[in-house]
Every structure is written in structure tokens, then in C-alpha cells.
Nucleic acid binder design. Structure first.
Length: 210
DNA sequence: ATCCCGAGGG
DNA sequence: CCCTCTGGAT
């Protein structure tokens, strides 16, 4: 169990470690972030960034994506994995954005969750990064690090989202989740975490015992 | 064999 | 809760 003072210190240390470049997905338009996030499911951001330039060049508008042939979209995103589902989701989400949301990415959780292939994680990315609303993004890194640190002791993503919403200051939760991702990649991966160089080791249940 | 900024369905 | 969807890197 961590005190509020300890939580604040963890936030501060991670801010110092990762001052900027919080979002590692490259995008220009809002819907590009939405679809890049969909592509990032069980795939590295690095690989997503590798395929999106050619993909968005081939389909430069939301309308062109809505009219796209799913099999052709699959060719561009194939290396990201789950390409049948992802291609279908992207094309039908593009259609729904046009038909139901005036061609704009909506700014509420309820509306975002109506889009095919958009779950709470993707929705929170949009709420946080596009609309600058309080958002808790729970992905594989957030699950692993918040458990190792000892902020939570369960794996269910929605339960973690609710727990972190209570623990973290609303105006800092989104950036904090981004930094957990960066820290997860650089210092605290699933295998062989580098506790010896970790800035928050003293506040981490796992780090204190390893 | 395990992991990567998950979502949907049973 | 479980399972499936998938390629690429380690």
C-alpha cells in the first residue's frame, strides 16, 4: 500500500525520467491516432509507426478509408497481426464516424465505445490525448507496472482503471499512464526488469525485493 | 516459449 | 471467467 506522498513521488520521478514525447504513436489527424491505437493491439508501437505512413498515404481521407476494400487494407497492416479483424474494424469504424459522428472522432467514452474495435483502452487514449480529458489508459505495460509497484494487486484492466482513477490526480493520470508505457519499455519489461537502474525502485514492491 | 500501448464474444 | 484473433522480435 502506498501513501499519497509516495504516489506523488513516483509521479515526480517518472516525470523527470520522461519529460516529453509521451505518445510514441505517430499521427496527424485524430482518426489516425484512433486507428493507430487499434493497430497497436498486441503489437509494438514501433511496428505500427512502420506501416501507418504508407497506409495513410494510400487512404488520405476518412472517406477513402470508409470506401476502402478490406482485403486491400489488410495488405498495408498485415505485419501488425490480427489483420483480418483490424482491417474490418478500421473500415467499419471509418464508415460509422462519417454516418453517425459527422466525420469527427467523438469525445465521450460512451460514443467512442460504439465504434467497432474501440474498447476502453483506445477510447481513453482519444479522451486523454485528443480531448485532454482525465483518462486512465490501461494497457499491458500499465497492468504489469502498476502491479509490480504495488498500486494494485489484480490484473483486470477495468478494475485497474477504476483503482488508478482513485489513486492518481485526474490532471496527471493520462501522462502518468504514458510514462508507465515508456518506463515499461525502457526499464521494466516483462522479462528481466532492470531494477538496478530504476529511479522508482525504492517505491516499488517488486524492486525492493529483487 | 513469451511478449508486444486489446477487443469481442461465449 | 475463458477463448480467439496474428505477425514479428527475442
Amino acid at each position: 500500500m502506498h501513501s499519497k506522498k509516495e504516489i506523488d513521488e513516483i509521479i515526480r520521478l517518472l516525470e523527470a525520467d520522461y519529460p516529453d514525447e509521451l505518445c510514441s504513436l505517430e499521427y496527424v489527424k485524430d482518426y489516425e491516432l484512433l486507428f493507430a491505437t487499434r493497430l497497436a493491439a498486441q503489437c509494438t508501437d514501433e511496428r505500427v509507426n512502420q506501416v501507418t505512413p504508407a497506409f495513410y498515404a494510400a487512404y488520405p481521407t476518412l472517406q477513402s478509408l470508409a470506401e476502402a476494400d478490406v482485403a486491400d487494407v489488410e495488405k498495408y497492416i498485415h505485419s501488425c497481426g490480427f489483420y483480418h479483424t483490424k482491417a474490418r474494424d478500421i473500415v467499419s469504424a471509418a464508415q460509422m464516424l462519417i454516418s453517425d459522428f459527422g466525420g469527427r472522432v467523438p469525445g465521450t467514452m460512451e460514443e467512442l465505445l460504439k465504434l467497432p474495435g474501440v474498447g476502453r483502452k483506445t477510447a481513453n487514449i482519444i479522451l486523454g490525448d485528443v480531448y485532454r480529458k482525465p483518462a486512465v489508459v490501461v494497457d499491458t505495460h500499465c497492468i504489469r507496472l502498476s502491479n509490480r509497484i504495488g498500486l494494485v494487486n489484480f490484473e483486470d484492466p477495468y478494475k485497474i482503471e477504476l483503482a488508478l482513477r482513485d489513486i492518481l490526480p485526474p490532471d496527471k493520470s493520462n501522462d502518468f499512464c504514458h510514462r508507465l508505457v515508456l518506463h515499461g519499455r525502457a526499464v521494466c519489461p516483462a522479462r528481466k526488469p532492470k531494477c538496478e537502474i530504476c529511479s522508482i525502485r525504492g517505491y516499488c514492491d517488486y524492486g525492493k525485493t529483487h
